[in-house]
């Protein structure tokens, strides 16, 4: 990426299988446009989400973390 290009962040999105993952699916089916910066990680439930995941994501170099239930 050149210096002048606009910064395009990488965001790890932890989505609950039953809520936000479904919403993402519906958004796709409904052809709603959203930024391509999120990288979706499906988790079985937000209760599965552990602080370790968030820190591990930051360690791997993401610019932001989004957890959605």
């Amino acid at each position: 990426m050149s210096e002048n290009a606009e910064f395009s962040p990488r965001i790890a999105a932890f989505l609950c299988n039953w809520c936000s993952y479904g919403a993402a699916d519906l958004a796709g089916v409904s052809r709603l446009q959203y930024p391509p910066n999120i990288q979706v990680i499906r988790i079985p439930c937000t209760g599965r989400m552990s602080p370790k995941f968030i820190l591990a994501a930051f360690r791997k170099g993401v610019d932001g973390v989004w957890v959605s239930g």
Binding site: P51, K52, L55, A56, F58, R59
Partner: peptide, 22 residues
């Protein structure tokens, strides 16, 4: 998976202390 590296790198030290506190 290895959640926390074993070095004295700032990210590893910070991860250890944040998670230990948590």
């Amino acid at each position: 998976p290895q959640w926390c590296g074993k070095t004295q790198d700032e990210a590893d030290v910070a991860t250890f202390h944040i998670l230990r506190a948590f």
